[in-house]
Structures are given as structure tokens and as C-alpha cells.
Design a protein around this nucleic acid. Structure first.
Lengths: 183, 183
DNA sequence: AGGCTTTGTGCAACTAGTTGCACAACCATG
DNA sequence: CATGGTTGTGCAACTAGTTGCACAAAGCCT
């Protein structure tokens, strides 16, 4: 149950409409909590019904008209509660590692190309994060907010670094592998 | 759609009953693809209906009686197909990073204790992986299968290492943080 | 004016994963 | 031999996330 809290956080950072939220989920927030616009609109409806957010008053909030939301005190309180509450880490699910393990049994035929593709994707993502770091966290700015946000970005950078290295290593191993590994 | 393939892999490594599979998911496989016994039984039923696996013949396969499954050729072919097929990385969702970002907005009150708890959990997991590595991958054994499996375990070790370091770093930052960070 | 694309909101149906519980068989033990 | 725990299988209901599509409004192009 984290999507509503992701939305509350985003709205506290800046009141937004559904589409604006969607864009921000595609950029920064989605790096560790992705969501489609359909999910977001549905959740905005629920949050409004619960009194956690409200639509900013506009002229004519009809279908096809932009509608912005802001967080109400109850929403902020809920987010605060949720943030402080103990939570067990949710189980990871990683398809690529699963496929590697399957490849150990049914053979590596065909997987190598996809590893290379993933390597490229992770390199690209890493470059993007490093760009953001350079732009948004120049040395010197170190308010509490900046430090926390930088910490989160560092996690993203280090995770992407890990994946690029692991994939590169995996591809090296593949190069050394004997031809037939079925069975 | 990866659970059936996780099960096929596990069954190819060794034919098993539902409960045995559940145990193996709790141990090794679950480290990158977790599943409950309910999920597993449901999926075993589907895989059997599709002709990908079959129950090993036993005396009386009644309710409460152990029932083992093995993979049929069709199942192996499907796993092979799936392993080789290109797949986009699925979006990550990490609650802890989300909470950190929320904390930057609503304050860090209370989250520190949970960071410490997570640090302990990750340290424990890391120790467990390293134990497995020492036991199952002594230097010298390097068949294709061993190399691939070792690669997967290395991913686990490196990820846990990353998290312990990141959490330790985060806790250091917290120690230096000014008292009031709300707003 | 007519159609064509972009922006923006949203419903409906489906798939995957979680939670809670039921129940049979087996095994120990007082 | 009853009772109580453990092993093992499984259904049902729910929650979260995905996919596909509908449709309104506004701007652009000819």
C-alpha cells in the first residue's frame, strides 16, 4: 500500500494535476516507485474521497479539463505516520536473475543478446542519474532536505553501477564458457 | 508471468512436491523470486493442465498425500523459449527509498530506528549468502552450470553489500542532521 | 469549416500476488 | 485410543498493478 503515499509525497513537493504527476512519476519518483496514469487517477479519486487531498478550485473542472490537487492536513499526517512506521522489506523479484538460473539448466542459447541490451539500458540510466546529480546537487548545498534527496539519488546511482558491472562481468563469463552447456 | 518459469526451473533442478518447492523458494530461489505455498500449488495445477509438468505416479495421491511433479518436454521447451526471449526490466518498487523521500518532506521522526533494523536484516542476509558461497562454490569447480549459478549468487551478495553500505551511510548522515527538518 | 494531433481525465477488464482459512493424513504421547 | 502438533494440499476472497480503450477540450493546418 505505497502508491497513495508516493502520491502524497509528490503533491507535498508540489501540487499537481494527474498528468503532471504521471510525468513526475516517469522522471524522478518512478525511479523507485513507478505508476501508470490510470493507477494515479484511480488513486487520486480514493485519496480525495478519504479527505487526504482536495482538488484546487478552478473554473470548470469537467472531463478533459486540468484538475490540480493539494494535500490536506489529514493527508500529511497519514504520510508522516506511514513514513515512521516499521515495515519489512518487500520480497524482490528479478526476472533477469531468474533467467540466468534457468539458463544454467536449459542452456544459454539466446540470452546473451538480451544481457547486452540490459547493459546498455542500465548504462543509459546511470548516465541520466549522474546528470541529475551534477545539476541538482552541486557541492555546498546541504540542507537536511538536500542531503536526504541526495541520499536517495545515490542509491539509484549505486544500484545502476552495480548492474552495469554485474552485466559486464556476466558477459565476460559467457565469452569464456564452453559451447554446449545443456542438461 | 515468471512464477511458472521459476517453478519449471526448480523442478528441472530436482522433481519435487509442492511443499518441497515452497521450502526451496524460501531458501535459494526466493532470494530473487519469492512465492507462497498457495501461489505454488495454484501454479502447479495450471502447469499440469497445460501439459508442462506431470505428477509422478504414486500409490494414492489424495488430499494430504505428498505429490511430486516432474517437467515434461513441452515444459522444458517453454522454459527455454522464455529464457531466450527479450524482456524489458520490470520497474523496481522500493518502499524504503520512497519513505526516505517522504521523510525529506514530512520529517525524519521515527524512520531512523527502522533503517537500523533493515541494516541488521541485510547484514544477516549477506552473511547467509557468503556462507552459501563458501560452501557451494569453493575455488576450482567451474563447469558452465557452476559459473552461472555462482554469478547469480554474486548478484545477491553484491546487492546486499550495497544495501548495508547505503544504510550505514544514511545513518551517518542522520547523525549529522540538524534537529528540525520539517516543511 | 473539417479533420488531425496533443493534452488531459477516466472506466473496465484482466493478471499477479497476498491473506486467511479448511482439511486430510501422519506421528507422538499420556 | 483420544488429543494435539506437524506435514502437506488446496480453495476463496481480496489487493495491487497492468492493459486496453473511451472520450472531452484545445490547438493546428489547409
Amino acid at each position: 500500500m505505497s502508491l497513495p503515499h508516493a502520491i502524497l509525497t509528490a503533491l507535498l513537493e508540489k501540487p499537481s494535476s494527474g498528468l503532471e504527476l504521471t510525468r513526475r512519476f516517469d522522471r524522478s519518483i518512478g525511479y523507485f516507485w513507478s505508476a501508470t496514469h490510470q493507477q494515479i487517477y484511480r488513486e487520486l479519486g480514493r485519496l480525495e474521497a478519504e479527505g487526504h487531498i482536495r482538488a484546487l478550485p478552478t473554473e470548470q473542472p469537467a472531463r478533459g479539463q486540468k484538475k490540480s490537487y493539494e494535500v490536506l492536513p489529514a493527508g500529511r499526517a497519514e504520510l508522516q505516520r506511514w513514513t515512521a512506521a516499521a515495515q519489512d522489506p518487500r520480497p524482490h523479484r528479478d526476472t533477469l536473475l531468474l533467467r540466468m538460473r534457468a539458463a544454467a539448466v536449459v542452456g544459454t542459447e539466446g540470452i546473451e543478446a538480451d544481457l547486452r541490451r540490459h547493459l546498455t539500458l542500465h548504462q543509459r540510466q546511470l548516465a541520466e542519474y549522474e546528470e541529475i546529480e551534477k545539476r541538482d546537487f552541486p557541492p555546498g548545498r546541504d540542507s537536511a532536505q538536500d542531503r536526504l534527496r541526495h541520499l536517495v539519488l545515490r542509491a539509484g546511482i549505486d544500484l545502476e553501477t552495480f548492474w552495469t558491472q554485474w552485466l559486464a562481468h556476466a558477459l565476460e563469463e559467457f565469452a569464456e564458457l564452453p559451447g554446449a552447456e545443456d542438461g
